[in-house]
């Protein structure tokens, strides 16, 4: 987990953040939050997986990404309007650190260094990494017109 979200902090800032945490567990299938609900909490996953989804009237919940061990679940609590852009469901049994957003936001306002460290971590590890991943998926690299590789059944011409 050291290279997960918490790995991006200095020891002091990580301790500071964890002082706001409590450990929680969700059974598989737990709805953690819904799209457009107020973002009042966030989580760092310790075990298990959470699917982020978007609801389509015809197709139901469309999973856009899965988060796992060490990853930050939720960043909408950090930016206005503090509402979830997607929904989240536990894919299997999940254990996580859970944080209330209010006291963490207050700490950010009060301690600029801590605030910068936290904002940086959210931006680089969570949002940045996911944005890069998302862009790569946009390329649809494995689409049928591309073999992916000549050395596994491609075609010179």
């Amino acid at each position: 987990m050291s290279d997960g979200f918490l790995g991006a902090f200095s020891d002091a800032h990580r301790e500071r953040l964890l002082s706001f945490a409590r450990t929680v567990s969700f059974p598989a299938g737990t709805r953690v939050f819904d799209e457009d609900d107020p973002a009042q909490r966030f989580w760092v996953l310790r075990h298990g997986h959470v699917d982020l989804d978007c609801h389509d009237p015809a197709r139901g919940a469309l999973v856009v990404e899965t988060l796992g061990e060490g990853e930050l679940l939720g960043w909408s609590w950090l930016f206005e309007p503090y509402r979830w852009h997607l929904g989240a469901t536990a894919q299997d049994a999940v254990t996580a650190y859970e944080f209330d957003a209010d006291p963490v936001r207050a700490a950010i306002e009060q301690d600029a260094r801590f605030g910068l460290a936290l904002t940086r971590s959210v931006a680089s590890v969570a949002i940045g990494r996911r944005l890069r991943a998302c862009r790569i998926r946009l390329l649809d690299l494995y689409r049928p017109t591309d073999t992916g590789r000549a050395s596994a059944g491609g075609e010179p011409r």
Partner: peptide, 8 residues
């Protein structure tokens, strides 16, 4: 042009 043709 064909010289470096790949499926993509």
């Amino acid at each position: 042009l064909e010289f470096t043709h790949l499926p993509g």
